[in-house]
Computed example of a mutant assay.
Amino acid sequence: MRVLSIAAIQTVPVPGDLEATWDRFEAQVVAAKTLRPHVNLVVVPELLLAAPGPLLLEDAEADARAATTIPGRVTDRLCDLARDLGVWLVPGTLVEQTDDGRLFNTALAISPEGSIVARYRKLFPWRPYEELLPGSEFVTFDIPDVGRVGLAICFDGSFPEVSRQLAWLGAEVIIQPTLTTTRDREMEIVMARANAFANQVFVVNVNGASPVGVGESVVVDPEGTVMQQAGGGEEVLFAVLDLDRVEVVREYGSHGINRPWSQLADQCALLEYPMFGGATVRPPEWAKPL
């Protein structure tokens, strides 16, 4: 089996206090790994380490206060933590500041050797509330002998093109740090299930806990079924993802019925997509025609 054992920590920052938030985060990651030594990937909510405050509390300096370069002091600490614990780490997202002063909402994947192996800038910031700049690239990374992981962030899940592209690139699980503070969380869960079902991938969507977020983190399997769902408060979803199941579902169909990727491989040359300027879709290399 190709097993990915995850700990999705639904937690909160200490609003406005970057150092206290780091201390909480570090202690929780250590505790999760200690409690379940087999865990090999830990993920936390979007912007956790930026220590955001309540949704409608005006804080014009929040992004500038949390901004960090990549690499930099924060990423050095993250790399040391991943190396010390021997885990893959997706530490939510950071406010990334580039050399020319631009700010992005950026997710990282850090290896157990303490190296940054992937950097993903959120493609669809939540407008108008989120003022950080959008990224321009889809990002996946490989966990040796396990499988390929795609990165998405929060509102990206409302755009099916993101999950479809990540799956096309070979992702078998999508890790989606999220910070949702509003009552549309139910629809985000609908989209997590739909994106998993349509692309036959696992989706791990971990939200911030109350009172900063509304919680309800989910782990969804490649057939669109919710494996686990959190409540509103702080908790950890431990899940063991058998990535071989992705191959099985794609081969035999979701619920033994539907094979969308195989059908797309059969029919992609027959269709043009007006919304994409009349382009056709190439099947991924791994797709098997019906």
Rank of each mutant, 00 (worst) to 15 (best):
G147C: 07
H38T: 14
D145V: 00
A32Q: 05
P128D: 03
P134N: 11
N199G: 06
N105W: 03
V146N: 01
L57A: 12
R119V: 14
D142S: 10
V201G: 08
A118M: 07
E96D: 06
G231N: 06
E137R: 15
P112G: 09
P112D: 07
T69G: 15
T69H: 14
R119G: 07
A60S: 09
A152G: 13
M275H: 15
A167G: 11
V149S: 04
A67W: 09
P112N: 09
G277D: 01
I116N: 04
L123S: 02
E46Y: 08
V220M: 05
G253Q: 10
V42L: 02
S217L: 03
T11R: 09
M227T: 14
G53P: 08
V87Q: 11
L237A: 02
S210T: 12
G170Y: 00
P13F: 09
N205M: 11
A167H: 07
V240F: 01
L49F: 13
F159I: 08
I189N: 12
T93Q: 01
V12F: 00
G92V: 03
R127V: 10
R185V: 14
L264F: 02
V14T: 10
N40T: 12
K288P: 00
K33Q: 15
N40P: 05
I153A: 05
A51S: 14
P112H: 08
D80V: 12
E113S: 14
L169S: 01
R2Q: 09
V44H: 02
L55S: 00
Q176S: 13
D17E: 11
D63C: 02
G157A: 06
E96Q: 15
A66T: 10
P274I: 04
L56F: 14
E223V: 05
R36S: 06
G213I: 08
F104S: 08
F138R: 00
G253A: 10
A32M: 06
